[in-house]
């Protein structure tokens, strides 16, 4: 069968993302390894262009597998345990972990794996020790799974964009729903800012975003819905645009609601050295419950579980009994 010659198409029909270089030329902020960071960034970029297929197409019908020859020239890439990238993106939406030991991942994000692996919920007796080392947060353990064993593990999350980041003795804070997986060398803590998690230490983690992630430099104000996380920024704060509420007309508008709002009066402002991670859409990823912090004076959001989604209202109080309602999908 012959096919009309087609111009080669970009993989996944996307143009390469016009991302900012991850770090400014004036040098990386302290606590970061520029090399590591760029490497990770490059790797992600490389995942967006399909690399030359290491697997040479086998002769037609070698074992009853069809011959893939789309009219575009390059056949779709077929991966196997050997050719899957190690700790890198397979495509913008799928990440391959070269597992040798343990890895933490959000529940239900495994799509396939080669090799011998076991997935166990965190909080089982054997894993209590590991838990102590890595989870210095009241994060609900039932949302996390530890994968143990050897092999290649594929992660994906509702076909959102996945990116991996390398931290070298650094810290990065990310929205709880966006964090997908992390190496056990990193420590996970709950941020003081409700709904966010902070990763500290050295290692790699994978985060999902709705649309590709952009790195921007403070000082900057970002839309709350577009914020994915930030690294090293000392002062994330709220910023309200009150100017339109000034004066008589503004006061009337404020009181009556007549005239409406632009929807952009509230932003997050970042000041200081670091990087802010932004996604290219304002669609929030469903947040994960980050657990309940101790009810104590001076603790923001204490005693109140943030972003509780799912669970039936009547079962919400079961809380530390294991959050049965959410677990059983009630």
């Amino acid at each position: 069968m012959s096919y009309p010659p087609q111009p080669p198409q970009s993989p996944y029909g996307q143009q390469p993302y016009g991302q900012q270089p991850p770090y400014p030329p004036q040098g990386p902020p302290s606590g970061y390894s520029q090399h590591q960071y760029e490497q990770s960034h490059q790797a992600t970029q490389a995942g967006m262009h399909v690399p030359p297929p290491p697997y040479q197409a086998s002769p037609a019908g070698q074992f009853g597998a069809p011959v893939f020859q789309p009219p575009g020239g390059d056949a779709p890439q077929v991966w196997d345990a050997g050719t899957l990238p190690a700790d890198d993106n397979v495509n913008p939406y799928c990440f391959s972990v070269d597992l040798n030991g343990a890895y933490y991942l959000q529940k239900g994000k495994m799509i396939a794996y080669y090799g011998e692996m076991r997935f166990s919920g965190i909080g089982r007796g054997v894993l209590d020790r590991v838990l102590e080392q890595n989870f210095n947060s009241p994060l609900h353990a039932s949302d996390w799974v530890v994968a143990e064993g050897r092999g290649k593990l594929l992660l994906a999350d509702r076909s959102y964009d996945l990116n991996s980041y390398d931290l070298e003795d650094g810290n990065l804070t990310v929205r709880s729903g966006n964090l997908l997986a992390f190496e056990p060398t990193l420590r996970l803590k709950q941020s003081i800012i409700p709904g966010f998690l902070t990763l500290i230490g050295t290692g790699k983690f994978v985060a999902a975003s709705n649309g590709p992630v952009h790195f921007v430099e403070p000082p900057i104000r970002v839309d709350p819905q577009a914020l994915v996380g930030w690294a090293d920024c000392p002062a994330p704060c709220h910023h309200y645009d009150h100017s339109y509420l000034h004066g008589v007309i503004g006061g009337l508008r404020h009181l009556t609601g007549i005239g409406g709002a632009s929807g952009e009066e509230h932003q997050f402002e970042f000041i200081g050295a670091g990087q802010v991670l932004m996604q290219s859409s304002e669609t929030l990823m469903a947040d994960r419950s980050v657990g309940v912090v101790a009810a104590e004076a001076g603790v923001p959001g204490a005693g109140v579980p943030h972003q509780q989604h799912g669970g039936a209202p009547g079962l919400g109080n079961l809380g530390n009994l294991g959050d049965l309602g959410r677990r059983f999908g009630l």
Partner: peptide, 22 residues
């Protein structure tokens, strides 16, 4: 497929396990 499909080869001695939802 919801998102570009990843094509995985299964060979002798190289079994693959897949999440049914994916």
């Amino acid at each position: 497929s919801n998102g570009p499909a990843v094509i995985l080869r299964v060979a002798q001695g190289l079994p693959l396990r897949v999440d049914p939802g994916a």
